[in-house]
Amino acid sequence: MAKWQKDKVAKTTAMKIIRFIIVLLVITSAAFATFFILKSDSTLLTHPKGVIARDEFHLMLTNVFHMLIVIVPTYILLFVVAWKYRAKNSSKLDRSQAEYDPDKSPGIFGELILWIIPSIIVASMATITWDATHDLDPYRPLKSEVKPLQIQVVALNWKWLFIYPEQGIATVNFVQFPERTPVHFSLAADGSPMNSFWIPQLSGQIYAMTGMVTPLYIMADGPGVYAGKAAEINGQGYADMVFVAKSTSQSNFDSWIVSVKQSPLQLTNNTYNELLRPSENNPTTLYSSVEEGLFNKVVLKYMHPMHPTHHMYLNHMDSHMEHKCAH
């Protein structure tokens, strides 16, 4: 081989090594960047602050590990096989000529193994899914000694209305509740299409729809302020339909209730109809009182034209909900 040819070979080999190192560097730095982004506090899903969100996050991790059992070896196999049996390889080394076998097939036994391996993984994930779905069912009340706080949520265009039936107050785009206390949200919508209620650090989302009530239970680990969002597109004001969820100690919560009771604003039929009008980017609003049975009226008006017998439906609905919760 002439010297210039040798030089060329050496050059291309060096080039290949450099290229490989660069690719490796890029991939590692991308992996590091991903890791740090996932670790940073603004990544809500990896920093759950409530029992439900934490369980959901752990479920994700379990599923990923299950998948990695299959996927990592498959990745390795893919590139190793592709590298080893590349045509250039077989022409370079004469011995690999013999390895070329164009009629090679795994055979029935081999095929069966191919079906069985993913089946085992899926079977394992399926049992986990079944249990987790039942454990984390939004209809299921949380286990706690403390009596749950009831909050009724109405999705309006484009703001969230929170009604505290026991306290007799209401808020817009802001919700406060005590820490380590189960909160039972009853979600509905009025004058708004399908909505999705989501506080990522406390729990997954559930839809809020007109004419029906969907439940969601959450419980915050400690005091904190969490971002809440509307996750399903619902028109012009969609992006600004956000709210703040705040968990505090029980005493702070009680004093907050007292302070809201001082608010000059009251949620009457009239102010509610005012609120029902589409509006964007709404500020936090606090109402010191709420008209009796407002939430039920909001739900029922989509089920049936206003009619004296609707209380019957109401009772029926409540008992139905309890029935579901009991299971």
Partner: peptide, 26 residues
């Protein structure tokens, strides 16, 4: 194949209902 396996893995997030509550619509 490389992207398909990545998609398969992320798909499992969504296939499991409680996990999907967190990543749905995101």
């Amino acid at each position: 194949v490389a992207t398909f396996m990545l998609g398969g893995m992320t798909g499992v997030f969504m296939a499991s209902p409680p996990a999907d509550f967190q990543v749905h619509n995101s």
